[in-house]
Design a protein around this nucleic acid. Sequence first.
DNA 1: TATTGTTATACTCTATAACTATA
DNA 2: TATAGTTATAGAGTATAACAATA
Lengths: 166, 166
Amino acid sequence: MTIAEEAAPPVHRFPNPLSRRFFQICTAATAAVVEPAGLTPLEFAVMAYVNSKIGEPDIDQTSLAARLGIDRNNTSLLVSSLEANGLLERRVSGTDRRVRLVRLTGKGEKLFAQLEPKALAGQNQLLDVLADDEREQFLDMLVRVIEANRALARPGAGRRKRNGSS
Amino acid sequence: MTIAEEAAPPVHRFPNPLSRRFFQICTAATAAVVEPAGLTPLEFAVMAYVNSKIGEPDIDQTSLAARLGIDRNNTSLLVSSLEANGLLERRVSGTDRRVRLVRLTGKGEKLFAQLEPKALAGQNQLLDVLADDEREQFLDMLVRVIEANRALARPGAGRRKRNGSS
DNA sequence: TATTGTTATACTCTATAACTATA
DNA sequence: TATAGTTATAGAGTATAACAATA
């Protein structure tokens, strides 16, 4: 009802607008599962990269940043937020005292175990229009495109200048 | 150099993180072309939906919002920004004086004509890892997924609550 | 001197809500 | 009363820059 249902507005068949819409959809689906637990989709993504089931417990923050495709500053803030909620803990590395090793707490592991299946189901449901083999193909291609363009995955990707004419 | 090149960090094979990375990449590629002209990727997207070549000149702002998958408020701001730069103009509709019809100015059309081929090339280049038929398939599937999940494409998709335990 | 992480800050994108003006 | 658009405001995400501690 919110948006014009009229004649199903066309989507431009170009990567950038398509990627934006796809991201919106995926984020909305994840948020629906994760928000009731007080998490943002990104915070949940951090937990996914750090948990003991599909993640890498005791990863350092710089590596975590690389996994997420964000930079160290934001990782720090995200980790602090999760830590403040008792979902995650930082430990100083024994071999290099600059490094913080990050892992979920018991509480964090438990919450992740509860949310992960729902989040995954919600995300996969988005691909229901695709046949099973198409779905695999689609994810494969997505991975390949991302791997191939890793270098672009986060430089100054949204800077502005305001007033292009002066 | 910015990000750990170490062993090419794995990407989780789930829609949400993949969509985020893909969006980052696409946005970076678009920004590289569009920023030198003082535009953000989203402002450029507005121009793409409004220009006379591949867009719909004299579209109203609500329909434009639906095309972009954003809401009226932001459309208003975006349009104002482009208008302030002389790239776009608003006209009151003759048949309904509440409605503003949006179209590019001569200057806007000219700038869009300059940027569009470069932006398109930049975006398509991201898909170079894919074979030609794969690329078409990929875009098709992306469109289908988006069409199928239109309803999700922008409700309260990022709200928060802070402190899930209380 | 280089690197890990932190803090401060700013800007884009997106959302909610309250408003004006038309219908 | 409902709709198109505007304005104000806020929060999520991401960026730069300067800094502290450690190597």
